[in-house]
């Protein structure tokens, strides 16, 4: 190997160690007894891995419920925002109708405004609809997506027009063309948006924290926050809980790595 390649690997490995050590420490601590966790100098490997830390946090906190709630929140947001964004994006990319540019201006405006400015009125709306402390409340801010509309519009604009014209000649109306021709062609864009939407819903903390305060309506994020509030110093259990909180998205990422990377790459081309 050339010395340049070696130097590159050294820098990258150093960075990778910094990236991965917190996760390894999480795993190691999750397997320790409380006494081991507070030893000086720190114990790197627990004598025997304490799986009981996991069962103990699952007994104290309804993790299964957190998984279900988080899953339902992600599914609700993904289905609504991907479908609605695809429709709006196709209209903006290919159809001519009055008010189109005004609508797209609204989409761009939404993307430029920090989302916290919407939160209090969204909360009050949820309250008015009597949805506080329910699963649908978790979905509310993500039902439509300006970002998704923007992303998919770029995508539709890049598709060739010939197929739509052929569909038209075959007697398809606009809805049929959209569903039968355009949606299948936009599959990779739709998947990117779905991944993106679920990743951000999964990581969202403030919204689930304010709308759902009963423990059985919390998501993984807000559940972990409330767990820390109650068991702030038992680190083996907190680390076991953290692992329970991060594994689903890590597994999804490892399985669909290429999609994640493509999805994110497609967002950074232009502002």
């Amino acid at each position: 190997m050339k010395s340049k390649t070696v130097a590159i690997h050294i820098v990258l490995i150093l960075g990778a160690v910094i990236m991965v050590v917190p996760f390894l420490w999480m795993i190691s601590t999750a397997g320790k007894t409380f006494a081991e966790s507070v030893m000086v100098p720190p114990v790197l490997f627990p004598k025997s891995f304490q799986w009981s830390n996991f069962s103990s946090v699952i007994n104290k906190f309804p993790f299964i419920t957190f998984y279900i709630n988080t899953f339902l929140m992600c599914i609700g947001r993904v289905v609504c925002s991907v479908l609605f964004s695809a429709m709006a994006a196709y209209a903006c990319a290919r159809l001519e109708f009055p008010g189109r540019d005004l609508f797209f201006g609204l989409v761009l405006l939404q993307m430029m405004i920090p989302s916290q400015i919407f939160i209090v009125p969204q909360y009050l709306l949820t309250q008015k609809l009597n949805l506080l402390d329910t699963i649908p409340a978790l979905m509310i801010p993500g039902l439509v997506s300006a970002f998704g509309t923007f992303l998919l519009r770029q995508f539709f604009k890049g598709l060739p027009k010939e197929l739509e014209e052929a569909a038209k000649l075959d007697g398809c109306n606009i809805w049929q063309t959209f569903v039968k021709i355009m949606l299948p062609l936009a599959k990779s864009g739709l998947i990117s948006l779905a991944i993106f939407t679920s990743l951000f819903a999964f990581k969202d903390l403030m919204w689930p924290l304010i709308v759902n305060r009963s423990i059985d309506k919390m998501t993984l994020s807000s559940g972990l926050a409330s767990l820390q509030g109650q068991y702030g110093t038992n680190y083996p259990e907190l680390m076991a809980a953290s692992l329970l909180g991060i594994w689903p998205m890590v597994v999804l990422f490892i399985l669909f790595q290429k999609r994640f990377v493509e999805g994110i790459s497609s967002t950074g081309s232009k502002l």
Binding site: C80, L83, F84, S85, M87, A88, Y90, A91, C92, L95, E96, F97, P98, R100, F103, L106, V107, Q110, I113, I117, F118, I119, V120, P121, Q122, L124, L125, I140, P141, L143, V144, S145, A146, T149, N173, I174, W175, F178
Partner: peptide
């Protein structure tokens, strides 16, 4: 035909953006 479908296609997102973003921004 384009006007008809165009309006239908943007309707959910338009209503959502107005109810969940535009009006809340003004309300804030």
């Amino acid at each position: 035909e384009q006007v008809f479908w165009g309006v239908i296609f943007i309707a959910p997102t338009l209503i959502g953006l107005i109810m969940l973003n535009l009006k809340p921004a003004v309300d804030t």
